[in-house]
Amino acid sequence: MSGDFFDRLEAELGGLARHGTHLDGVAGRDRRRVVALIRRSAVIVILAVALAASLVGEFPASASGRALVAQVSVAHGL
């Protein structure tokens, strides 16, 4: 490359602009953002399912509504 520093810089950055190298960076960042969003969503869904499963394990009857039926039966029995 000829010319002074600023001519060489213009030629190099201009060449990169022509090849779209700067856009690869933008596309890469956008892709990383989407992947991070998907990861966060997946973690939230997994946590929600785990929480629901633990609640059902802790209170199996209330989860199915049987506790209410049992209380009503006891009341009728009295």
Partner: peptide, 21 residues
């Protein structure tokens, strides 16, 4: 670095151009 554009270096004779600008 992201662009792979670190090959242009400042030479001694460039300094006068910087000051002129």
């Amino acid at each position: 670095e992201r662009l792979g554009a670190s090959s242009v270096t400042v030479e001694d004779e460039d300094l006068a151009v910087v000051l002129e600008i």
